[in-house]
Amino acid sequence: MTKMMYRDAVLSTIMEEMARDPDVVVLGEDVVGGMGTAGGPEAIGGIWSTSTGLYDRFGPGRVIDTPISESAIVGAAAGLALSGKRPVAELMFADFIGVCLDQLWNQIAKFRYMFGGKSRCPAVIRMAYGAGFNAAAQHSQSVHQILTGMPGLKVVMPATPADVKGLLRTAIRDDDPVIFLEHKALYATSGDVPDDPDFMIPFGHARLCRAGGDVTIVSTGLLLGMCEAAADRLAAEGIGCDVIDLRTTSPLDEETILDSVEVTGRLVVVDEAPPRCGLAADLRALVAEKAFSSLKAPPLQVTPPHTPIPFARELESAYLPSVDKIEDAVRRVLAWR
């Protein structure tokens, strides 16, 4: 095990996979980001420091600074992938999928099906998502809700450095298009990461972070930390929570959720995306359909309100899920009759 930051887990995994497989190439805005062509210490290496040093090691043929042209970045990644390369493309902010949605939705997600299984598009599209930085309505969004709804994409949301390592490696080696969502607030968090150069976590396998037995809490990414904090508080009162990290929203590990809810009979889904037609609604529908007889209370969700993301600090705090809000939802689901 090596202790490393989430952002370093992203960087080191890309570096290892580039070293292992010459077909892996990286492209995105400011991924080199230095003066001149030498990269070097003055280069930014991406604003999230997730590509620092790649240029020095692998050169301009494999680490490509792009213009600010998201449609062409994703389109080029798709073309590279169709012809056998393994591009790892970066959108600086997840919000920018708005600019290149056609390439994601009408192109990448549909190739395999509409070409009758003849094509492969092993592209990884990485992007930083999430609020909490006063970055306002166009630089703070959680977009998994939109992308998870698209058949033909895999959607990954790692919550820890170890999961970054295992899931990103799986993503790069996967033969299907993968959306890899990195929460901005997690980049500087640390954790132990396995040293095995082939450590991989399969998609569609959720992680049980806490076992409690009274209430099931399901979440992704940054919010798991809040879910665990709420679970710890409640445990002090003898209330036990199962906390489940989905890891991937597509494919979805239904089994782990249903197994837990069959025991607890109570579900709280915690999500950073807006409340309508999203992950939380989807999972609540899942248990209503497949675990109906186990339910002891209506499944609840903790999400932001149905509004864009506000700028001011206090408004943004009020907007986001919190430990208090999660704790409150657990109490409500327990208090129901």
Binding site: A135, A136, A137, Q138, H139, P310, F311, A312, R313
Partner: peptide, 19 residues
């Protein structure tokens, strides 16, 4: 006042520097 995210800001504190 918008930059500091106050209610008297031109976007009532909801937009910030960019909006």
């Amino acid at each position: 006042a918008e930059l500091t995210g106050r209610g008297a800001g031109i976007s009532r504190g909801k937009g910030g520097s960019m909006h």
